[in-house]
Each structure stands twice: as C-alpha cells, then as structure tokens.
Nucleic acid binder design. Sequence first.
DNA 1: TTAGCTGCTGGAGTCGACTCCAGGTCAAGC
DNA 2: GCTTGACCTGGAGTCGACTCCAGCAGCTAA
Lengths: 163, 163
Amino acid sequence: MSISSSSSTDRAAKGRRDKKARGEARHRIGDVTRLTGLSADTLRYYEKIKLLRPVNRAASGVRVYDERDLSRLGFIQRAKAMNFSLDEIARLLEMREDPQHARDEVRELTHRKLEQVESHMEELDTLRKELNLLINLCRGAEAGCPIIDDLDSKSKRKKPKRS
Amino acid sequence: MSISSSSSTDRAAKGRRDKKARGEARHRIGDVTRLTGLSADTLRYYEKIKLLRPVNRAASGVRVYDERDLSRLGFIQRAKAMNFSLDEIARLLEMREDPQHARDEVRELTHRKLEQVESHMEELDTLRKELNLLINLCRGAEAGCPIIDDLDSKSKRKKPKRS
DNA sequence: TTAGCTGCTGGAGTCGACTCCAGGTCAAGC
DNA sequence: GCTTGACCTGGAGTCGACTCCAGCAGCTAA
C-alpha cells in the first residue's frame, strides 16, 4: 500500500508537488483524499450538499482545494467524530463564519448532543449487562441454549419446561 | 388516548373478544398492533422478510395470529431491544427451533454483539468527555464561541488568534 | 342498506451518508 | 500519436428497517 515503485500516478503528482514547493499549495481531489482519508466521491458529495463552498477550478476544470477548504474538511471530520450529523455540521460551519452570533446556538446544539450521547450510553450499559448475564448463563450450561431460553422466558410466564 | 366512549372499532373488536373468551385466542393484525406496539405494516413486513412464518388466514383472508406467533414476536422485540439486527434475529429464531444445535452459534453471536456494544460504549465515553469539555469551556467564555474554536484548534497548529 | 372501520395487495418512497457507474475530457510521459 | 491515469458529470443504486399509498374487499352496528 505505501511502498511502491514510482507509477505514472506518482509521476503526475510530482509535477504538482513541485508547484507546491514554489509555495502555491493547491491540492487536487486525489491529494485531498490522501490527506483526509475521505473518498473523492465523498468530497464531491460534500460540495453537492453545500457542506463545502463551490471549490475553485483549474482551467482544465479540475477541482483545486486550498488551505481553507482543507481546514473546513478538518472541521467536518472532527465534528463527525463527535457524532454531529452532516446537517448539524452545516449549521456549525455557518456559525463558524460568524462567531459573534454563534455562541448560544452552538452551545445549545452541543448540549443536546451531549444529552443524546449520555442517554444512548445508559441504554448501552443496560444492554451490556444483559448480554453479559446471558453469556455467563451459557458458560455454566450443559446442553441447550440458555441465551435463547432467556430471551424466551422474559415473556409472561417462567417457562413450563417445554411442551 | 386511552379513555373513549365505545367506537365502532371497539365494538368490532368485542365480537372477537367474545370468541376469545370461548378459548380460541385468535388475534387479527389490529389486536397484535395493540398487544405489541408494532405497526400493521411492520408485522406484514416481518412476514414478508420471513422473520415470521406465513401467518394463518381466516376464510376472509385476514391474518390470524396465534400464541406461537405472539411468542415469536415477543422474542423478536426482546432481541431487537438487545440491538440484534433483523438478520441476526432471523438466525436466532432458526436456532430457537433447534436448541441442541444452537448453543455454540448463539453464544458466538451474543459474544460478538457484546464486544460491539462495549467498543461503541468506549467511543461514546470519549465523545462524552470531549463534549463536556467543550461545554465547560463555553461556560467561562465572554464572547465568541469556544466550541467552534476548539473544533478548529484541534487541527495542526495552536491557532494564531484569527487572521 | 349503508356508513364506517379493518384489513388486504403490490409497489413505491423515506432516511442519511455515501458509493458506484458510464461515458467523457485532459495532461503527462514514452 | 498513444497510453495511462486522474478527473469530470449526472444520475442511479445501496443499506436497514420500515412507512405510505391507492384501490379494493369484507364485516358489523344502526
């Protein structure tokens, strides 16, 4: 994956790196996929749904991402890692442009997100305990399947052995 | 919602309840939605994807659910609450029919599910801490939005104030 | 008899976040 | 000039788990 003899891909990229060395720092979509781990399709998709402003184009029509685009993408990725939806991220990005206005709304959004996360964690914790219980039940069993029995017996009655 | 003068719906259901009182316990889809909380569409959908065996029909063609169907639905709901996917539940149900064979596979499945749940919880916990941090940062701030700043400043550099 | 309700079917639509595709252009290197 | 690879576009498809719809039939109380 990372070690390979120079392909024409690499060679094509080299020309652009030379430009960059002259201080221009203009990235084509392939560079950005390498830098961010996002796929080209995803990058175009983000632009389509206006998570990114229309990206600049070279004369040939290819997208040229600048540092601001990269910083926006970094923001998006961090917000995604924080479980914000693309819709919410779009709002965060808007507010990011206008920080004076943003504070209350952003705090609101973050607060709600935190509550969601916390209640989700509680559910998962209950679930974890139950699954653990099932597995322990199973460990001691000789035959049959206590997990299935348990999933059964949680219904109304204490299970009359099997009919 | 729960208190209402007897509608024709109620009256229609009463006839069937009388039958049930004579020991037949045959539920139409509407009864089952009331008993389980699942929508009629969902019940039909479960049958379509074979999570339920083809449900018996009355002469008129309407579905008639018996106690076994209800018990299967209970099983499905509990397994869903345990975060099993419908696909996994289908497998659990198969094994439920043949418990001698089931044990190892079911334990396997449950074990994997537990691991998923645990790693998801870890992620969420990290997330929770970070969100908390953001909100606390925000609390102390006078203006601007520390949350956005933080999401920004986690990029490469420590943020040169604002350009 | 009729209104009103419940139920039936096959099929399409929904959600979010992509992912894939065909058919094309463009640039670099041999 | 040709090959190769990167990139472009619009549009369709994917996943899971439903949800909605039109158009119809059957049952029951008044």
